[in-house]
Amino acid sequence: METLEQIKSRIESAVPGARVQIVPNDTPANQPSLVVDSEHALAVARFLRDDPQLRFDYASNVTGVDWLETVTREKVKVKKLVDGVEKEVEETIERKTTGYLEAVYHLYSMSLKHGPVILRQRTSNRTDPVHLASLTPIYRGAEFQEREIYDLYGIIFDGHLDLRRILMWEGFKDYPMRKDYVPPDDFEYEPTPHDEVLERARKHYPAPAATS
């Protein structure tokens, strides 16, 4: 199989205007992935499937990820004029990254027996009604998994054939796999509560009898 850099440059030449970015992975898995913009995701997926050297004809897994807003602090030495003398002063810089939702596709080639290539699409934020391109027209097997992502994360897949909730019922308002999901308060009976459950269950404990 070609390296990810080669695939990236070939995508860029085959799909004009596509913004592809390689996400490194520093964990022992060392499995870098490609982030594509959702406007060109469908064309990129079509290229990956139809290119004779790649032939990624099988989407083995589609999943969603919820990335919260992160703040990283970094200490940087800056040269400054202090009392007319130039000195090195340490300053902390806060870097904020906005949160976003992500759909991750693991693509394999059945015909050429290679893979995976990991394709990611990211939304610009995680608060608005977030839209991504559906890859179901290319990979029919992604249909139910994109429905599940829609159900649990609330990502709306444009171009999906039949985007409905799949596990929860119609009329359910929440997105349970989002990190800010608050489960319904049904902790009134917890025989062996601990940790987070204990705090939730405590709210239901009867008020202590007044001792006089």
Binding site: G171, F172, D174, Y189, H204, P206
Partner: peptide
């Protein structure tokens, strides 16, 4: 099927949270 949970969450004629 409610917006966040089943409505009601339990049937008070059948079940009460044990004390």
């Amino acid at each position: 099927f409610g917006e966040h949970d089943l409505e009601p969450a339990f049937n008070p004629e059948v079940w009460h949270p044990p004390v």
